[in-house]
Design a protein around this nucleic acid. Structure first.
Length: 281
DNA sequence: CATCAACCCTGAGAGC
DNA sequence: TGCTCTCAGGGTTGAT
């Protein structure tokens, strides 16, 4: 499931070009094909398809797990949710080589290239907006924001009274973390997923922020994780310490990694290294 | 404000 | 082989 590192990887591939495909920058949209109307959050399909032809892609940015395509006169925002993917391919390759069963949207450019939005589980969404302010209004800070110092992060944790795991994946608290990187960051910081956020010491808060940045950086360096049957070409899954490592020995102490359910989400942790008690180190 | 559950979906894997 | 059941998960929504 794409989290910040996977979305960032896709962003960089769209900008730089990937494999044999060119950069998406300066491509001009010629034609729109929408195969699953539910993909479109707004506006309605008719307005969407009528507006886009002639629009040029000027930039590709990221906010949280959203990809933001700056067009000549609007923003095209994409959220990949669970199974979405976004890539360029030649306009004739779908008919010739590939099963297009899960394609939800095509943007055909004036060149021979096509932007494909493929999304097996249909959870992904696309917005065409004049302004992204409302959509992003409730998002928390970016993990790499320079303003986010360990003191600021500690204060954010103390202002809430929640278990760490659900808090980390709450996009209004911090933007871009999902289930994988939350589990990995908590393990690296040696904090129990059920620890109450307000109980963290200043040094524990600093350690958690540092761990979050470490695992996200590692994920980006590895071009993201390719898990389940969704392959995106990254190999961070080979570096998981606890995620999907249930029963395997903890890399730190050797005790078997355990899996529980926290806030409706599968949660992996080491019961020895990740203590629930308040650390007074 | 925090917590919980249902919902949106598909396909993989288990059990029979 | 082929059926049915369960599960996974990001984010939204509504109830407690």
């Amino acid at each position: 499931m794409p989290e910040l590192p996977e979305v960032e990887t896709i962003r960089q591939r769209l900008i730089k070009g990937f494999d044999k495909s060119p950069s998406i920058l300066n491509q001009t949209i010629r034609q729109v094909s929408l195969f699953w109307p539910g993909t479109l959050a707004e506006p309605d399909p008719h307005t969407f398809s009528a507006f886009l032809p002639g629009q040029k892609i000027l930039a590709v940015d990221r906010r949280a797990k959203f990809l933001v395509l700056l067009l000549s006169d609007a923003y095209l925002v994409v959220h990949l949710r669970m199974s979405g993917d976004l890539y360029l391919e030649p306009q004739d390759s779908t008919t010739l080589y590939r099963d297009s069963k899960h394609d939800r949207l095509w943007l055909d450019f004036e060149s021979d290239w096509r932007l494909v939005f493929n999304d097996m589980r249909k959870f992904g969404r696309v917005w065409l907006l004049r302004d992204t302010k409302d959509l992003f209004a409730k998002l928390g800070p970016e993990p790499f924001d320079e303003q986010l110092t360990s003191d600021v992060f500690a204060e954010m944790l103390h202002q809430r009274s929640r278990q760490l795991k659900p808090l980390l994946i709450d996009q209004s608290f911090l933007a871009g973390i999902g289930n994988i990187y939350a589990d990995e960051a908590l393990f690296k910081a040696q904090l129990h997923p059920l620890r109450q956020s307000e109980s963290l010491t200043l040094s524990e808060a600093g350690s958690l922020l540092e761990s979050i940045r470490f695992v996200l950086t590692k994920g980006i360096d590895r071009k993201g994780a390719s898990i389940d049957w969704v392959y995106r070409g990254g190999d961070f899954q080979n570096y998981f310490q606890v995620y999907q490592q249930t029963g395997n020995p903890c890399p730190r102490c050797g005790h078997p990694i355990e899996k529980t359910k926290v806030g409706q989400r599968g949660t992996h942790f080491c019961p020895v290294c990740q203590k629930i008690e308040t650390g007074n180190s």
